[in-house]
């Protein structure tokens, strides 16, 4: 029985396309793993209780709050962080550009959640209503924009996507 207990856990995570084989302590949150061990500090820490959404990443194509995700449970997951939305040369994705152009960011602390939730929304629903947008972003708090400009940015992103502008990089 004892041999079923591990003090550290081996995970094979593909993060923004790069494979990381990591031996991690059982108690580590995905947020701490990304920020402290992998220096991916675009994923922000706001509350550690799952309420603010600043720590959002995408795990196997579905958004999650990394502060309340135990890294050891992830096995062989594919993870996209906000860094993974930008192209290698630093060019912003169409979605990021739409947020930039429409004051969808002010301080940018909430950007990981707002952007990654929008990516997932538009993958499943390319023509969302205002209510759909609000539901998709409901897990994210923004203390700056008042949310109107975020909704505007999402709509602008839909328009540019329809017009054939480059989409979010993988």
């Amino acid at each position: 029985m004892e041999d079923m207990l591990e003090d550290t856990v081996l995970v094979n995570l593909r993060i923004n396309g790069r494979l990381h084989e990591l031996e991690i302590p059982a108690h580590k949150s995905l947020l701490d793993l990304l920020r402290e061990d992998l220096n991916l500090t675009g994923t922000h820490m706001g509350c550690m209780t799952g309420h603010c959404g600043a720590c959002t990443v995408s795990i196997d194509g579905r958004v999650a709050k990394s502060c309340i995700t135990l890294a050891a449970t992830l096995g062989r997951a594919k993870i996209t962080t906000i860094e993974g939305l930008t192209q290698d040369d630093g060019t912003l994705s169409a979605l990021q550009q739409a947020f930039w152009d429409n004051a969808g960011f002010q301080c940018g602390y909430c950007a990981p959640g707002m952007l990654l939730c929008t990516v997932e929304l538009l993958e499943t629903n390319p023509d969302p209503s205002d209510a759909d947008i609000d539901t998709a972003l409901a897990g994210n708090l923004c203390r700056c924009t008042g949310y109107q400009s975020i909704r505007r940015a999402v709509k602008a992103a839909i328009t540019t996507t329809k017009e054939g502008a480059p989409q979010a990089a993988e």
Partner: peptide, 10 residues
């Protein structure tokens, strides 16, 4: 359920 899409996903 509250907490947004992130909580619904996990």
């Amino acid at each position: 359920i509250g907490g947004g899409m992130q909580v619904h996903n996990r």
